[in-house]
Design a binder for these strands. Sequence first.
DNA 1: AGTAATAGCTTC
DNA 2: GAAGCTATTACT
Length: 289
Amino acid sequence: MDDTRLRERAPLTVIVAPSNVSPPRLSPADLLPDGDAAFHPLSAVNGRLTPPGLEPASYATLTPLLPLPPISTVSDKFAYHAGGTFTVIQQQQSYASLSPTAYNEPLSPQSAYSRRSASPGSYERRSPSPPLPSPGLDLNAALLARETRDEQAQQTQQNDTEEINTKELAQRISGELKRYSIPQAIFAQRVLCRSQGTLSDLLRNPKPWSKLKSGRETFRRMWKWLQEPEFQRMSALRLADAPNQTIKGDNVNNMQQQSYPREYQPVAPAVYPPWETPAYEPAGDVTGL
DNA sequence: AGTAATAGCTTC
DNA sequence: GAAGCTATTACT
């Protein structure tokens, strides 16, 4: 874990260090695998977009899926907004926009959407009175702020209204699960709050978006997971199962498909995939990032 | 043995 | 009827 942290903080040169993480299986130290290149831009972007001092990797606090929100509404607004963490949003977008291929298949997440709403009017509509920067500020800064705002609006709109190419999304998810050897049961439970059987069915027989009703929510979660930077994806997988939430049919805790004891301590720096690591890191470890 | 796919059932 | 769960089977 310290390795991860070091890498997070480390200057670019260190990150570049070949960690040759070719095997699909992720170890905690490999949370920034070969796609590390994708994270380089982040540092730059982070440097100029986010307030200094805000660490880019507070897994515990940044993880959007942490207590998995009720499947009905929250996911529509995305936890980032709820959490009000400006920085996170920007980072997320940076990842999404800057690294379409680094840790993704040739198919970028965006392409899973049937289209992108890049309507120039979205910004004005959503932000009627943007706090314009004072004349003293750099024009670039102003444009940047505007751009960021625009992207946020787009992101929100995508999550809310955009259609998802479910077939493509299913293929993407399947591919990612295979690539990292993530069992369906784990992904289904930790990320989707669904059962393995449900996920299997959705992946194999995805209904077209237009024919989906409440089932869209599950696909949205898949989609959001895909959009997340890798460390967040893994963090989500590693999460404790959501406590008994009053979600219809969401009694995942009753599933006896697999029980991953979360009590045991990771005595040695064992190498296990993130979803097998204890949900609760030793005190102060994760949050201390 | 572990994981994925599927059939039948339940819930809303 | 859609969506999902459980139990079971099939697959590797």
